[in-house]
Computed example of a mutant assay.
Amino acid sequence: MEAIIKLNSQNSIKKYTRSLARFQSLIALFILCFVLSILSDKFLTIDNAWNVMRQISVNICIATGMTLVVLTAGIDLSVGSVLALSGAITAGLLRNGLEFPSANLYVGFTILGAVLAGLLIGALLGVFNGWTITRFKVPPFVATLAVLTIARGLTMLWTKGFPISGLGESFSFIGTGWFLGIPVPVWISGIIVLMAVLLTRKTRFGRYIYAIGGNENASRLSGINIDKIKIAVYTIAGGLAAIGGIIVTSRLDSAQPNAGITYELDAIAAVVIGGTSLSGGKGSIMGTVLGAIIIGVLNNGLVLLNVSPFWQQVVKGFVILLAVIIDKANSKNQ
């Protein structure tokens, strides 16, 4: 009888722990907002709320792609550099076009053409990441770290180390404009999230992503084309990083050679805080969105409190570490 009572008690504790783990990000966000609202009277204002949403839009774009990668038990450290290169390519083509002196030819670009070129660059770098990982069996950490360096170097070569500015009001609308009372970047990130949710929940491709992250060997034996899915996932991540780069470039009206530095850390933090396991196979896009909001609110709060940028990095580092520790603890309890 005592054994049965003890077993029921253990089951109740496990159920409670699982329920708490499911809502831990939401609880953390509520506590964070409550504390910041006490410490700063500027935090709970409409203008600041829109400011936070506009700032996290880029991270949501990047983190959505990162979520798909992490669900396959991978990682992409190159997204910040891909963001910078894609933004620089877009700005350079829009501002200067392409010149071919030997053929006495000049090719100009419309906003749509320049944006598509930037997206193509991001997607191609994603393809390269996926191909390197699947074809040569290079660990994702190493492969994407190499592409991080390559893309950063290409950005410096393209820009010659100088910003590309003066891109026009029409282009700046992407990063600073409003549509139906909502900032355009929020619309863009919202559409991306909606598409990613449908992709992961309603398609065979989404089920394959979870299956690969859960057990790659079993997925291969089930007939899933592992390499094809992984390349597609890294391609999507590269394309979404490019979208983030275009938004950043548009908002600043300038392509900065050093843009996107540490953006990969914010994206990984959003993914982990949102409950996606670094081991793969478990997590959700909406969890990542919640994680991105937490990171955005934290950044905003630290700025409002006039905390040094150097201490901000320290705080975010500890937040990432804490999120990983909680993830590991939850994995052991299941």
Rank of each mutant, 00 (worst) to 15 (best):
Val35Met: 12
Lys328Phe: 13
Thr203Tyr: 06
Leu305Phe: 05
Tyr106Trp: 07
Thr235Arg: 14
Ile224Gln: 09
Ile150Gln: 07
Leu36Gly: 06
Gly87Ile: 04
Met156Glu: 15
Thr90Pro: 03
Leu98Thr: 02
Ile192Phe: 05
Val297Ser: 02
Val289Trp: 02
Val82Gln: 03
Leu77Gln: 06
Phe136Arg: 15
Ile247Ser: 07
Thr249Val: 14
Val324Ile: 15
Leu321Pro: 01
Thr203Phe: 12
Ala49Pro: 00
Ile111Ala: 11
Ala218Ile: 03
Gln334Met: 06
Lys137His: 07
Ile285Gly: 00
Asp266Ile: 02
Leu304Ala: 06
Asn8Glu: 14
Asn300Lys: 14
Ala196Asn: 01
Phe310Glu: 12
Ile320Leu: 15
Ile326Gly: 02
Ser9Cys: 03
Val272Glu: 09
Met195His: 02
Asn11Val: 12
Leu298Met: 13
Ala21Asp: 11
Pro309Asn: 06
Phe100Lys: 09
Ile231Asp: 10
Asn300Leu: 08
Ala151Cys: 13
Val127Gly: 09
Phe173Asp: 00
Pro101Ala: 11
Leu298Gly: 10
Leu77Pro: 04
Gly213Lys: 00
Gly113Asp: 12
Gly239Pro: 08
Lys316Phe: 07
Leu36Ala: 11
Ala292Pro: 00
Ala91Ser: 11
Val58Met: 13
Ile111Pro: 04
Ala211Val: 09
Gly181Val: 05
Ser40Leu: 14
Asn129Pro: 03
Leu83Trp: 06
Gly161Arg: 15
Leu120Asp: 01
Val35Gly: 05
Glu264Thr: 11
Glu216Trp: 02
Ile133Ser: 02
Ala28Glu: 04
Ala237Pro: 14
Tyr16Val: 08
Ser277Arg: 09
Lys316His: 05
Ser331Ala: 08
Thr132Asn: 09
Ile13Arg: 12
Thr235Leu: 14
Arg54Thr: 12
Ile4Lys: 15
Leu125Pro: 01
